[in-house]
Design a protein around this nucleic acid. Structure first.
Lengths: 147, 147
DNA sequence: ATTTATACGCACCAAAAGGAGAGTGTAGGA
DNA sequence: TCCTACACTCTCCTTTTGGTGCGTATAAAT
C-alpha cells in the first residue's frame, strides 16, 4: 500500500465506459481468480513483499504477523503457482529461500493499493457505522420505508 | 468493475511518497478491515450492487450467482453493519426489501474496481503461470539459484 | 380452502480452514 | 558430541464455514 503507483493499463481502462461484452467463460474465470486472490493472507503477504522487496521465509512471517508456518507456506506456494511471487532456493545449509514479487505480483499489489488506502482513509467511518448499527439494533428498529 | 471512477481522495494519496507514520493500533484495525472486506462474497455483492444500483434480496442472489440464502443474508448483514449497504424494508406483504450501496460502499467498490480490472487484464498470464508451474513441478525442478 | 410469493431465521450436518507441535537434514559452532 | 539455525512437512485436533431443508407470516390470487 505504500509506494505503488497506479498501473497504467488499469488507469487507461478506467476511462472507457464499460466493455459490456462479457464472455461468461471469462467472467467465471475472473470470479475464480478474485475468489483466490481476495484472501486475507494473500493480501497481507503481497503488502509485505511490496514494502520490503525481498524477504526470507521467517522474515516474511514476522512482517506479516500472526500467520502460522502452515498458512505461510501454503499461501506463498499458491502465489508462486499463480505467478505472483518468485521463490528462489539457495542450496546452502542451513537452507536459504527468498521470496520476491514478480511483475505480475507487483501489478496486483498496485491494484490492491487502492483498497489499502481506502481502508486507511475510511476506517473511522466504518467504526462509526458499526456503532450506530449497534445502537439501532439495541432500539430494535431497523431502517424502514415509511410510505 | 464497470462504471466506477477512481476515488479522488485515493488518487490524491497515491501521489504522496509514503506516510510511514503508522500507528500500530491503526495498522491492526486496517488489517482487520481488510480481513473482513477481502471476502469473496463481499466483493461479488459489491460488484452486483455497483452494476445494478438497487436490488431486492432474491434478485441480488441471482445476480451474484451460486450463493446460498444463508450466505447472502449473512454477508449483506455484515455489510450493513460496516455501513457499506443500506437495507430498506417496505412493510408490505409479501415482504419487500431492497439493498443499495451507501457512499462508503460505493467508494469501496471504486477501490476494488482496480482489482477487477487487474483480474480481467491478467487472467491469461495467470493461466500461463499455472501451466508452467505444473510443468516445472512435473520435472521436479524448482527455481534454484545456481551460484 | 389451498396455493403462491418474499425474505428471511433456525437447526443440523459435512467439509474445509487453520493452529499447535513434533520431526527432518546437515553444516558449523560451543 | 550435542546444539542451533532454517525452511519446511506431517499429523492431529479444533474452529469456522457453508450448504440443505424446514418453518413463518399473511394478503392476494385461484
Amino acid at each position: 500500500m505504500r509506494k505503488a503507483l497506479p498501473d497504467p493499463r488499469i488507469e487507461a481502462r478506467r476511462q472507457q465506459p464499460a466493455p459490456e461484452t462479457v464472455d461468461p467463460a471469462i467472467e467465471a474465470l475472473v470470479h475464480d481468480i478474485i475468489g483466490k486472490v481476495a484472501d486475507k493472507w494473500t493480501m497481507l503477504i503481497l503488502e509485505a513483499l511490496q514494502e520490503h522487496g525481498t524477504l526470507r521465509f521467517t522474515q516474511l512471517g514476522k512482517v506479516v504477523g500472526g500467520i502460522s508456518q502452515k498458512m505461510l507456506t501454503q499461501t506463498v506456494r499458491q502465489m508462486e503457482k499463480d505467478g505472483l511471487v518468485r521463490r528462489t532456493v539457495h542450496p546452502v545449509i542451513p537452507p536459504h529461500v527468498d521470496y520476491t514479487l514478480t511483475p505480475l505480483g507487483e501489478s496486483l499489489g498496485a491494484a490492491f493499493c487502492g483498497v489499502w488506502i481506502w481502508a486507511e482513509t475510511h476506517h473511522a467511518e466504518i467504526r462509526q457505522a458499526r456503532a450506530s448499527f449497534a445502537e439501532r439494533e439495541a432500539a430494535t428498529s431497523r431502517i424502514t420505508a415509511k410510505d
